[in-house]
């Protein structure tokens, strides 16, 4: 496997799909299999929507992930009890997820699993740290780009993005959308001693003043800006949106006088749901976006097959994507 060496440089890796059915599970399975004979200990968990045994969109069964002996996995009680493999329990959390407590276990034999992991970013981060005591070399996170997921996969050190025909059935359009995502993934980190404090904030829009003090702007969400526009710059030009951002905040900020001084901070790229047009115009006007968490994007994996049966030309897709993002692009199925 070509990017295995690169993957092993990092302690944790998130696999994130740009859309359902972009081959995230195949990619995960591929990595796990490739590491099967290495002497590395892998841990794996998922931060997809809780209880997602059926794909939320297509209602097809959620693919299972095949794991091998000695792999550590984290899953909620519900999915743990449905497992078909033998596994040694190493820990049971005190906190509850929507599907029961979180069980950490070591696979004793080989088999397929469905699992659901920590429901929030902080918990995921703790689990990645805790896994050190079981000698984990690589912690894999089955991530999701979803507005509903509160756990951010960006706490991992590295990342693979999966994309494909499910995102768009037209190569130029698919490349354009994926390119925007990679640009967002590469957004710079907001260098500050406030990062941990900001990550704790769950709600609302905040500001950081010139004395490095965080203020609650009493704006519930960047989506509800219309009624609270006058408050936005009341504490200066550095704005932190704790939830997701969409075109409306970028469009609003762009037409203000202070756009060149404006700094917009979000937790990570998974919180940004903007169109290319809005993003480009925002940046062109002088606005800046920073993130608090930034994993290293290792490569992009493509799935030329769409769920409704449409197939793109894998080679052309990879070439076009590579030209646009300048990152290694693989088609897992075409590797063998």
């Amino acid at each position: 496997m070509p990017f295995l060496k690169e993957i092993l440089k990092y302690k944790s890796l998130a696999i994130i799909g740009t859309e359902k059915n972009t081959g995230k599970t195949e990619c995960l399975n591929h990595i796990i299999q490739a590491l099967k004979h290495s002497n590395k200990t892998i841990a794996i968990t998922s931060i997809g929507l809780d209880g997602e045994s059926l794909d939320q969109v297509t209602e097809t069964p959620k693919p299972e992930i095949e794991i091998y002996q000695n792999t550590i996995f984290l899953s909620s009680e519900k999915h743990f009890s449905q497992k078909q493999i033998t596994a040694e329990i190493l820990n049971v959390s005190e906190k509850q997820t929507a599907l029961g407590r979180l069980v950490t276990a070591r696979a004793i034999d080989t088999g397929k699993l469905i699992f659901s992991g920590p429901p929030d970013t902080k918990w995921l981060k703790e689990e990645i740290q805790n896994s050190q005591k079981y000698g984990v070399d690589l912690f894999l996170v089955d991530g999701a780009l979803s507005r509903k997921s509160t756990a951010s996969p960006s706490v991992t050190e590295s990342m693979i993005l999966t994309t494909g025909a499910a995102l768009s059935a037209n190569i130029p359009n698919l490349v354009k959308k994926t390119k925007l995502l990679t640009e967002l993934i590469k957004l710079p980190i907001f260098e500050s001693n406030l990062i941990d404090e900001l990550l704790q904030i769950e709600n609302g829009v905040w500001a950081i003043d010139s004395e490095n003090i965080i203020h609650n702007l009493e704006i519930q969400s960047s989506l509800l800006l219309n009624k609270t526009k006058d408050k936005l710059y009341s504490k200066g030009n550095i704005i932190f949106a704790s939830g997701i951002i969409t075109d409306n905040i970028l469009d609003f900020m762009r037409i203000q006088k202070n756009i060149k001084e404006t700094v917009l901070i979000v937790k990570d790229f998974t919180k940004i749901f903007v169109s290319q047009e809005s993003y480009k115009s925002f940046v062109k006007a002088g606005g800046k976006i920073f993130v608090l968490l930034k994993p290293k994007l290792i490569s992009i994996c493509v799935n030329p097959l769409s769920p409704n049966g449409f197939v793109l030309d894998s080679k052309k897709l990879r070439e076009e994507l590579y030209k646009a993002v300048k990152l290694p692009v693989y088609d897992i199925k075409a590797l063998d």
Binding site: E88, I89, L90, N91, A105, D109, T110
Partner: peptide, 22 residues
């Protein structure tokens, strides 16, 4: 060590079956 599963040590039969299964 605080860890647990139904160990093969509990039953030679189980141990045998698990080997066969593998």
């Amino acid at each position: 060590i605080p860890a647990f599963y139904i160990y093969s040590d509990y039953s030679p039969e189980l141990s045998d079956l698990r080997k066969q299964k593998d």
